[in-house]
Structures are given as C-alpha cells and as structure tokens.
Design a protein around this nucleic acid. Structure first.
Lengths: 232, 232
DNA sequence: TAGATTGTTAATCGATTAACAATC
DNA sequence: TAGATTGTTAATCGATTAACAATC
C-alpha cells in the first residue's frame, strides 16, 4: 500500500485558492490571517480550511491565526510550485493561444516553454516570444527540459494521439481541454477542463429546477420507444 | 422544503458527458447502447450511469440497453438544452475571444449573442459575425433577449462589478473565469472555471506524492515563525 | 488570566459501489 | 425459456461539519 499519505483531490484543489488569497494579503502587507478570514475570501468553511492545512502540518498559532508569508511558503512547497514549473501547450488554435498568453502573463508559478501545432499555416508564428513549433519537435524538448506537465487543446480526434506522445516522452500530468476521455497509463494524471460541459451543466441551473423536473416527469408519461425505434 | 427534487451537482455535471457520447453514437448510426458501453466511453462506472439516469426516469429497456436517440432527447430536456440557449460573454480579451469562438463553432446547444468589453481599442471589432459592444449596452440586451446565462472573462478586479450588473438584469447562471470568488444572491448559480487553479493543482500530481509529502514533513521540523515574524 | 483561534476527534451527511430482483 | 441488462435497494466509503480540548 504505497498511498498511506493519499490526500484527497478535493483538498488539493483548494490549496491554490488559499495560495492566491495569501498572495493578495501579502501584497497588502497583511501579516496574520485567521481561518475565518480565509473562509470569507475563499467561500470554504473555516473548519474545512483548518482541516485541509492540518493534513500537512501545524502551520498556525492558536489564538492568533496563520502567518501569511510562512503559510504561503508552506503551500508553495506542498503543491510543488517552489521552482517555477515548465509547461508546454499542444494546439495553438484560439484556445491554445489564449491559454499560452494567459499562463505567460497571469500565472506566476508556471512557465510555458513551448507551443506545438501541426498546421503549417501557423507554425513559425509567435505567441509573445514563443514560436509555434511542429509537433515532431516535442519529444526532444520534453526530454531535454524534463517537462512533466502539459496542456492539450487540440481537436478531439487528435487528443489521444498527442497524449500518447506526451506520456511516452515523460509527461506525468495533463490538463485536457479536448472533449474526449483520455486513456493514460497508471501514474499519469489527467484533469479535464471541459468548457462545453461546464457551460451545459450550468444551463441546468439557469431555470427553475423544480419546474424543469416536473416537465420531465410529465414527459415520461409518453410511451417509450420499442427496441427497434429509429425515428417516427 | 422546496427542494424535494434536489439532484446533486455531481450528477448534473455528468449529464453533458453522456450527451456528447450519445451525439457521437447517433452520428455513427448506433441505435442502442448499454450502460457498460457508456461506461467505457465516459470513464464513469455503469452502475453510476444507470443510477444517474434513474433519477429522472426509466429510460432504458432491460436486457437491451438504452435507445440512443430517445436517451439523447431525454437528456437534452433534462439539462434544458431543448431550445438553443442564448449566452453573452463579458470580456473580449484573449480568453473571452477564444471562448466566444469556441462556443460559436463547437458547442451545438449554445448560442453567443453578444460580447462586451470596456476597452475602446477593441469595441467595434468583430468575432466571427459578432461585434464587441461596450458594457453599458449589456442591460438592455440581457433584458430584451431574456438572457439567463453568461460567461465572465474580465480581469479579477472587474469581475464582481460585472456579476452584479449581470444579476441585476436577470442573469441566473454565471460561468466565471476570473480568479475571484463572486458574491451573488440566492438563486443565482456560479461555476468557477479557474484555469490557474486547475493547472496548479495538477502540478501537485506531476511529481511523486510520497516524496513531496516527506519533504514537507522534514521541512516542518524547522521552527515556526513567531507571531511578529515578518522576514528574516 | 481571559479571549481567541488552532488542531483534532467524533458525528453527520452525501455520494459511490455492490448486489440483485425485475423484466425485456 | 435463457441471457442480458436495467432499475433500485442496501452497504460502503469518503468528505464535510460540528464540537471542543489544547494552547498561544
């Protein structure tokens, strides 16, 4: 059982939120913060925040709260952001380009070192100072720069092939924007950032839930299709 | 207790995944699909899929599976995608532009009807056939077209103001890309699509977890700062 | 010392998994 | 009828919330 220390995904997803709040507080030169204040800023409960942090150690001071700079350093080390993480982006379409620009300018802990695409029309173009390279250049760069994390924003049909190539060359974590389920070997992590799904599931909540559900109920009274149903 | 029918967020988030798979199967003219097959395509377990669907009705045929066209229609009605949903986008920077293009071309159930920004340099530009409008034009459009869903991809500092404006004029659901927690009144739903957080939390998994955690443990042996700690 | 707030244990809640009877 | 697969109930698992002793 190698995972005695297995900490849940939900906890890990909250850490970057705490980090961002701490960054903000430090910019304002706030020295101490309580779990209550972190709760106000993050929307998570104070109890949950204390519990999350306690998985990794006792970082606070009873009666006083958490030292912002100290806690920030701890969280940075926990997530693994203590050295700027090098990343590459596959797919330099609209989304890939936006993601590259976004991370180059807004994400202080991440560095995009290369962007790849297979479209001859855009290879050679630059996104800020980064040139778009053909995908066959990726293996060498992944290996030489020891890249462990990549973003995939290629069309759905190409995504699995790109993931295979990435993993073969050493990628351990993929942020996948393509609308497909990627198969990866044990030990490789995929997070899906599927904007269509986010948006569609949100639409469910844009009208009264009860009303919607009772409409469904009514609808269900209509007869079901037989096994050989095709279209009326 | 008005929420006798309260179905969990996790269930709702899986429905668009089923929908997408059904769309694909129907394109291939597959007529029936089992929960087992849906499981293979989606990565969720067959039991979970059957249970998710059963919240809304008995859509399958024992021994045979689900009729793809019938189930698609049901899911579309459940989510509320039966009439194309009109949406607007606030913020026409890199991300906002990419999101607009993406939804215009790739999301068959959603229609972007307007994009707003406050930067005079980009107002009047077009994204496909959609002109970027100043934000003060938004209230009228939201009301007249009865828009219930919007995307927010403006800078963090502006996001709460935009959310307030949107909600005041009738928006019920917000897909928020800005790195802040938005405060909205009861009954308005916010989904956060925070790319920085996705990427940072993924970095946690890009190196061996155990190793990382034992490093933290060691690190914790070093002394904590006193209450008045600022910087060495 | 009194007040505040953490760190931690116990209780609750909710979601997933397992099992299987129903039934096509 | 036999085989397959759903729909549903029960069991398990995991995450959140509540409570409070520890302690600054």
């Amino acid at each position: 059982m190698p995972n005695r220390n297995n900490i849940s995904k939900s906890v890990i997803k909250r850490l970057p939120v705490y980090l961002r709040i701490l960054d903000k507080l430090i910019r304002r030169e706030v020295e101490m913060v309580s779990s209550k204040e972190l709760s106000n800023e993050s929307g998570f409960t104070a109890e949950q925040i204390r519990k999350d942090l306690a998985y990794f150690g006792a970082f606070g001071t009873r009666g006083a709260g958490y030292n912002t700079m100290f806690l920030r350093e701890k969280i940075i080390k926990i997530i693994g952001l203590d050295s700027r993480t090098d990343t590459i982006v596959f797919g330099a379409g609209n989304l890939g380009t936006a993601l590259t620009r976004y991370n180059l300018t807004k994400n202080p802990y991440v560095n995009v070192v290369a962007v790849f695409d297979n479209d001859p029309k855009i290879i050679g173009r630059k996104i800020h100072s980064i040139e778009i390279l053909p995908i066959n250049r990726a293996p060498k760069i992944i290996q030489e720069r020891d890249i462990k994390v990549c973003l995939i924003s290629v069309p759905a049909a190409a995504a699995q092939g790109i993931a295979d190539l990435a993993v073969e060359n050493g990628i351990k974590a993929i942020l996948n924007f393509a609308p497909v389920k990627l198969s990866v070997p044990e030990g490789v992590h995929v997070h899906n950032a599927d904007l269509t799904i986010e948006l569609q599931s949100l639409i469910y909540y844009s009208s009264a839930e009860e009303e919607r559900l009772s409409r469904i109920e009514k609808d269900n009274k209509d007869k079901k299709p037989s096994k050989s149903f095709t279209h009326e």
